[in-house]
Amino acid sequence: MIKHHPTFELIQSFVNGDLPASLSAGIAIHADMCPKCQKQIAQLTDQVAEASFEEAFLDRFIVDDSEDVNVLAEFDFDVMAEQITASNEVFVANEQLDKTIVFNDKTYKLPRALQSMVMGKTSHIGKLSRARIQLDENEIHTSLLQIEAGGSVPEHTHKGFELTVLLDGSFHDEQGEYVKGDFIMLDGSHQHHPISDNGCLCYTVANDALHFTQGINKLLNPIGSFIY
């Protein structure tokens, strides 16, 4: 059963469209597997939509900006409406081919939210395989990470945040067991050492190279930039 969910604040920013694509996709992937968050998102979207299009709420934006009122008055919506309706084109949804990705001969179905994203080449270190997702969000790095059965990520902390959404399989760390659909958000104060007994596939988003905390692993620091 899914036990780890995004916070209310994250869901709120998600609905408002304020999060970067990487985190938005993470929440969308989780919500697809979690009816509870799905429901919360749907309800919040209803509320936000209703409030957004309420005249009274909108008036707040132009309280001390009389210029805007003039611009709005001059703006010709009718012309725009006519231009739009002149086209008879109707949107046809692409047949959503269920895209897949292969790690070490194992084929995974790609979550809907990732269908249009560009995947980089897969690289390997030991039992870890990673494909970067090309989102170009500067210091935020997004990847798909496969841990083969018996593999683990060395103990580490982060300066920023590290989001892991479990797409398949399971892993455990000092805090407990995580299953498919779990949304695990860690910040710099957390330290963990995920181990996957039977293998798993994760969607990961991190905004800083991770920092290894245990003796020999410090020497392996390149693995930090490898994974996240």
Binding site: G17, A21, A28, R112, L135
Partner: peptide
């Protein structure tokens, strides 16, 4: 911001279906 024209939004927030599953 990023000069990206990848139009990811409809995959993240589908306009074709509600987020609430049918039964519910």
């Amino acid at each position: 911001k990023g000069n990206k024209e990848d139009n990811l939004s409809d995959d993240i927030w589908p306009v074709a279906e509600s987020m609430v599953s049918e039964n519910e």
